[in-house]
């Protein structure tokens, strides 16, 4: 059987000007997955968004004084799912401590993790000695 897995290993400088580059990669992946029967435009937007949000977090939580830091992203497109891992070497955070936004209060911030959790099938943030990783999975059904 033909192997249709795709593995991308991306390293980009720790700067928001690269958000659009990384987001576009997410969109292009969605367009490549011809076996996906759902709304591919929505999938493209969703992968763009979660990559943008996760990379913004990695930049924010990484050691900002080190402007030569990189953001490391691994994307695996398997037969049934897309897995995205974004590494950061900052202090990290507990994803379960981040509350859902209060829709009655108009806050400027605090919607990023909510959007990621809403659009992905599983999300976890693992703290490790060598760095933290935000792992997200989108099922392709």
């Amino acid at each position: 059987m033909e192997n249709r897995n795709i593995e991308l290993d991306i390293k980009v400088p720790n700067h928001t000007k690269y958000l659009s580059l990384v987001g576009r990669i997410g969109e292009d992946i969605a367009k490549e997955i011809d076996r996906y029967l759902g709304d591919r435009e929505s999938l493209a937007y969703q992968l763009n968004l979660v990559l943008t949000e996760a990379m913004t977090n990695a930049i924010k939580y990484a050691a900002q004084e080190n402007s030569d830091e990189i953001v490391h992203i691994l994307i695996h497109v398997g037969e049934h799912e897309v897995q995205i891992k974004i590494y950061d070497c900052g202090q990290g955070f507990d994803i379960n401590d981040i509350p859902a936004p209060d829709f009655e209060k108009l806050e400027d911030r605090g919607r990023g993790i909510f959007l990621i959790k809403s659009l992905m099938d599983s999300v976890q943030y693992v703290k490790r000695k060598e760095g933290n990783v935000l792992e997200m999975v989108k099922k392709l059904h």
């Binding site: 958000l19 987001g23 937007y45 763009n48 968004l49 943008t52 949000e53 913004t56 108009l106 806050e107 400027d108 911030r109 605090g110 919607r111 990023g112 909510f114 959007l115």
Partner: peptide
């Protein structure tokens, strides 16, 4: 395309 930061700027 808009992300949470863009929504935040509008809020």
């Amino acid at each position: 395309f808009i992300d949470s930061s863009g929504l935040g700027a509008l809020v």
